[in-house]
């Protein structure tokens, strides 16, 4: 197995510049959750010129709506949700300083361009591995939009959370690279 890169948010331009599509990464530290409804609210706040309920400069947002924590656990199953639904919102958050996103599935052209322009990174985690990924999440706390239930924004403390770089600042896209290698015409 190739070398694994260890990252601890917050990220900056220099760190992000070292990442290339296909790199395996283990993230440790604080990340935030957010999916459809939370993204809509964050961008609405920005549109009104208001302050966001979480810091996003240098941070990583994990597109996830976890299951409720069973007794004695920090969180329930917590794998990535499909990312294209966040495409309408991600460029705006990247422009505000967001550095990383964790999800699954390809992003649109606008997001890929925003990743290059604002120096961000899009990671994929393995979708449908909610029980496995849950073990790498040590703490979870709702920090905004409690009324959204599973879609509330949570602050997570993760240890060795496994992801792979899909979109880097150089325009690399692991979905394109990987599929072209195995396609049979």
């Amino acid at each position: 197995m190739e070398n694994v890169i260890r990252l601890a948010p917050p990220l900056n331009d220099e760190i992000v510049a070292t990442l290339k599509a296909g790199d395996r990464v283990l993230i440790s530290g604080t990340i935030y959750t957010g999916r459809d409804a939370a993204h809509k609210r964050l961008v609405e706040l920005l549109d009104r010129g208001e302050k966001l309920p979480i810091p996003i400069r240098g941070e990583i947002i994990f597109f996830v709506g976890p299951t409720p924590p069973p007794p004695g656990r920090a969180i329930g199953a917590a794998g990535p949700t499909t990312s294209y639904r966040m495409d309408p919102y991600s460029p705006r958050l990247l422009a505000e300083g967001l550095k990383g996103m964790i999800g699954k599935g390809a992003r649109n052209q606008e997001v890929r361009e925003a990743i290059c322009r604002y120096k961000g990174v899009y990671f994929a985690a393995v979708g449908g591995c909610g029980a496995l990924l849950s073990q790498r999440i040590k703490e979870a706390e709702v920090v905004a939009y409690d009324d959204l239930g599973p879609e509330a924004i949570r602050r997570l403390r993760v240890e060795d959370f496994p992801v792979v770089v899909v979109n880097d600042i150089y325009g690399g896209d692991l979905y394109e690279i990987g599929v072209s290698r195995y396609r049979k015409s």
Partner: peptide, 10 residues
């Protein structure tokens, strides 16, 4: 034959 593979990563 599409080559998408597990998780679409090839």
């Amino acid at each position: 034959k599409l080559g998408l593979g597990p998780q679409g990563l090839g």
